[in-house]
Design a protein around this nucleic acid. Structure first.
Lengths: 149, 149
DNA sequence: TATTACGTAATCGCTACCGATACAGTTCCT
DNA sequence: AGGAACTGTATCGGTAGCGATTACGTAATA
């Protein structure tokens, strides 16, 4: 499908919001500030934050002193939720259609597809055990979280 | 990085070789035949089979009646080996560099990178529990294999 | 020797993404 | 009220990567 930086940008943005303690409209962070931290273009950030907003992970407000803020504590936002919010997936390719002639050969694509889905699910499951708060932890502490079975 | 169909094509090709019982030079399957089954171009198949050959998964021989064959029983070839053979990975994007100014903001990229690596490792681990032989099993049987923790 | 087939390089067309600009709508501040 | 700041979205250009194709040298068989 698609190479996309949406997930890394989303994760970075959420971690930044958590670090800024932006948990309310009073502490909204503008897309320009987030973009400066990534770094990337403010529009790229807004494209991502718009999706995060639709997923209910963050709030956003236009106007002066506007911006984005977290709607949930950082430790309650897991990365698999973030991945789904930006329509991401573990991109290992798409199973080819195969040919309809041979009954066995035609079955291979379904099997390959199932394997791709299983791998994607495993990646998502792994990400479900990492929270945005974990991204801000010390490297040593983070290591412990990532290593935990 | 890159969207690539290398892994699905490789998995399909190996399953096809297993189905054809191509376990020796006597049963070599030409790239044109593999390409017809995927379906894709013979050169695309040869690009993939060349990588699988370098990884020691298959043998290949040029000349008349040439082609590729498996070097190991299909149940001994796991899909994570195949993924590595074609230099594939779970593609969730690349962690942005961040800015060097803020000490905390600069640490986020490393954390995001670690999460991406963990997700990739989880996908590979899942694939390590699926063999080429599993791709040829009945859908019901395959379901059982994929579901097994 | 003629044929078949691999392995590799070069090229082409296509697609998707990022970055940038622009604009309408919204919100705050003076 | 008016201006400034900011979001969300549309659009465009540049770029990068991929699959498909053609081509060519090498190797193995008949």
């Amino acid at each position: 499908m698609s190479d996309s930086q949406k997930f890394p940008v989303a994760a970075h943005a959420l971690a930044y919001l958590a670090h800024k303690e932006a948990f309310s409209p009073d502490r909204a962070v503008a897309s320009a500030e987030l973009a400066a931290s990534v770094p990337t273009n403010p529009v790229v950030v807004r494209r991502v934050t718009a999706m995060l907003g639709k997923a209910g992970l963050i709030g956003a407000r236009a106007g002066a002193n506007g911006g984005a803020w977290l709607l949930k504590p950082a430790q309650d936002i897991t990365l698999d939720t973030v991945l789904r919010a930006v329509h991401g997936c573990a991109n290992l390719g798409t199973a080819p259609p195969g040919v309809k002639g041979c009954p066995v050969g035609a079955r291979i694509p379904d099997a390959v597809r199932a394997a791709l889905i299983a791998a994607d699910a495993a990646a998502a499951e792994r990400l479900s055990r990492i929270s945005v708060a974990d991204l801000l932890a010390d490297p040593a502490e983070r290591e412990a979280v990532l290593k935990s079975a």
